[in-house]
């Protein structure tokens, strides 16, 4: 299959990047992104990276403590990171919002917008989850 005449071959083994704009619980964006990543990995696609921007930086703080019968959004992302997926929190957006390296769950790193740039350049598709 040739998508949009852009010379891409088929949907097997695409390289995807995922960007999340919204914080946890308040918006569905983070849940949708998580489900998308899980489904993409199950289908055999590569996740080139996941980038948290705007309030999205709040998704991976270990300070969150949701009720036990609710999903733990930060831990879920950490589990994705443990699979070897590069998860990046934007440092500029994080500094504005009081998110620092020491409050991040494991398997997540804090870095600059250059990381998003490289994802946009290297991924076949960037998929954005926001409001």
């Amino acid at each position: 299959m040739d998508w949009n005449g852009r010379g891409r071959t088929g949907v097997q083994g695409m390289k995807l990047a995922v960007v999340v704009y919204e914080g946890p619980y308040n918006h569905e964006a983070s849940d949708s992104a998580y489900n998308f990543v899980q489904a993409a990995l199950a289908k055999g696609h590569e996740i080139r990276g996941i980038f948290f921007y705007h309030d999205g930086v709040y998704n991976v703080t270990k300070l969150m403590e949701p009720p036990q019968d609710d999903r733990h959004i930060a831990n879920r992302w950490s589990e994705i990171g443990a699979k070897g997926v590069d998860i990046v929190v934007c440092i500029a957006a994080a500094k504005r919002r009081g998110i620092k390296d020491e409050v991040l769950v494991s398997n997540v790193r804090i870095s600059g917008l250059g990381q998003l740039t490289m994802m946009a350049i290297e991924a076949d598709r960037v998929v954005t989850f926001g409001d």
Binding site: Y53, A92, L113, L116, M118, I121
Partner: peptide, 11 residues
């Protein structure tokens, strides 16, 4: 801010 950073890259 994203645009200004990305403009510095080869794209």
């Amino acid at each position: 801010e994203v645009k200004l950073i990305m403009a510095a890259y080869d794209a």
